[in-house]
Design a protein around this nucleic acid. Structure first.
Lengths: 144, 144
DNA sequence: AGTCGTTCATTGATGCAGTCAAACAAAGAC
DNA sequence: GTCTTTGTTTGACTGCATCAATGAACGACT
């Protein structure tokens, strides 16, 4: 196990919890403003780098593949996404963002940069500090 | 509006998004390990400081009151929470954690301190730095 | 060739979270 | 003593999530 429950760690954990909740809420709101749910927005965001098999989407979001079927169904019904056959394996369906989907996703991403108010409180040097600390945390989280 | 989309801000936003997702997932998992959903755990956590009216729970979590009815129903069915009459206003029902509820909530909170791995990557001085930065962000987010 | 086990996506059943509109009781105001 | 407002609940509905089972295609192996 590891970290003792010193007051400093406790406070950082609580602060993170607060900010996590703020960021999470802002993300949901930004998605809702475009009539997307949070889950739909996440999938759409994943497709920015290119089409992906259903399986891989499920894996990335750590949920059941059957779950993705429904989310993609709804996105497809709105013309934001399309299922295409994979030429190399006829079992897999690759999900690709349509032009409308790309646009919605880009728009959402843009809006987040402005919506994320808490960052505005920090100056450039502080952001650099924060970035370095977050990088270390993210790296260690990724390696588990 | 405000922040320009300089690369530094962009990177910090992306890092925050990553860590938000990691923390969020760990929270859900810690709750699930105790057969609680995330929403149930949040309500239980809110009650640590004492009983609260339904209305105020809804307000704090920014959702509809009717939503809280269901969550409290399920918590109550498991004996983690109890509805009590408010002596000063017969319309309101105050929700209080039972002893089992307190225990579950405390246990969950404990487990979080150990589960939150990313923090382990930082030494004490860095945590202090991080705490200061997060404090400023949290303050500015709270004042909106 | 044909069979066996595996993998990908879907379907159906189920539970929880969330919204909205409508109901009802109690409180407060006039 | 009506009238309005407030706190909670109910019912109908949508979406997210899980699990179990199905079916199609792949891969390996004899």
């Amino acid at each position: 196990m590891s970290q003792p429950q010193d007051p400093l760690t406790l406070e950082v954990v609580d602060l993170m919890a607060t900010l996590v909740s703020v960021f999470h809420k802002e993300y949901e709101e930004a998605a809702a403003a475009r009539s997307l749910t949070g889950a739909q927005a996440k999938v759409l965001a994943l497709l920015r780098r290119g089409p992906l098999p259903m399986r891989q989407i499920a894996q990335t979001l750590s949920c059941e593949p059957s779950n993705i079927t429904g989310i993609v169904d709804r996105l497809e019904a709105r013309g934001l996404v399309a299922r295409q056959a994979d030429p190399e394996d006829r079992r897999v369906k690759r999900v690709a963002a349509t032009e409308a989907g790309e646009a919605a996703s880009a728009e959402l991403r843009e809006s987040l940069h402005f919506a994320r108010a808490p960052l505005a409180a920090l100056g450039p040097e502080e952001r650099t500090q924060l970035r370095d600390l977050l990088r270390r945390m993210a790296d260690s989280a990724g390696q588990r």
